[in-house]
Design a protein around this nucleic acid. Structure first.
Lengths: 118, 118
DNA sequence: TTATAGTACCTTGCATTACAAGGTATCATG
DNA sequence: CATGATACCTTGTAATGCAAGGTACTATAA
């Protein structure tokens, strides 16, 4: 028997989250203009977790790819906020992602149901 | 406007797959003993893609973590095959993963449906 | 005016990991 | 004994999530 480590159950959440990260972030933004901290808060309220160090690079990347726009809005108390919104290309990509997501969910649902079948 | 690259739509599939990779592999193995090439074939038949260079390290890792066992079985034509099966710990982890997966699917379904809500 | 706390932005460095490419070994066939 | 098919596995690269640390603006209190 080879040296055996412990498989982290916490990691299960993290792993599964990864594949759908950009997707969920785009979903949040599609519901209305938001700035970073709001995205984190909204995701958390849906039991989906992202942290700052992950979110900012993704927002920059999606903007660089032309999927997101942003505008600075002054806050009543504190520094200005960068409000993000989807571009039309962003909306197209999000629709594509949604189809891909639904497809994958269907496939996996089949595997789960077939659990003891051939 | 910053330099704008093209967001790869092929990458959408790849990205989403990643988070659920170990999960789907464990699901396949839970349906009966299989060796690597069969896993790839079965996943492909469910529109889920994995390649050799990805699969072998994952199988080793899951074995090292005590989630998988294997036994060598001679083939009628060709080199011997390494048939994988779940350990009891593997079954427990798979059940946990399934619950996490269902939870995430529910959360994201809400986000999709709420698309234009507050 | 200086210090502190709160909010918001962003970057750096590390660890993980999916994958392309290349490698070894076994068996059957001509 | 060469060739092709099958099966295993490893190496190097690129992507990327995240902890940690950093900058800047506003408000409040000393």
């Amino acid at each position: 028997m080879s040296k055996k480590n412990k498989y982290s159950l916490e990691n299960v959440e993290a792993q599964m989250r990864k594949g759908s990260l950009e997707f969920t972030i785009l979903l949040i933004i599609s519901r209305g203009e938001v700035y970073a901290s709001e995205i984190i808060k909204q995701l958390k309220s849906h039991d989906l977790i992202v942290v700052e160090g992950t979110l900012y690079p993704i927002l920059s990347r999606l903007n660089r790819f032309g999927l997101l726009d942003y505008s600075w809005v002054e806050s009543e108390s504190g520094p200005p906020r960068k409000y993000y919104s989807l571009t039309s290309e962003g909306r197209e990509v999000l629709e594509h992602m949604t189809r891909v997501w639904e497809g994958m969910v269907s496939s996996i649902r089949l595997l789960i149901k077939n659990d003891n079948a051939g």
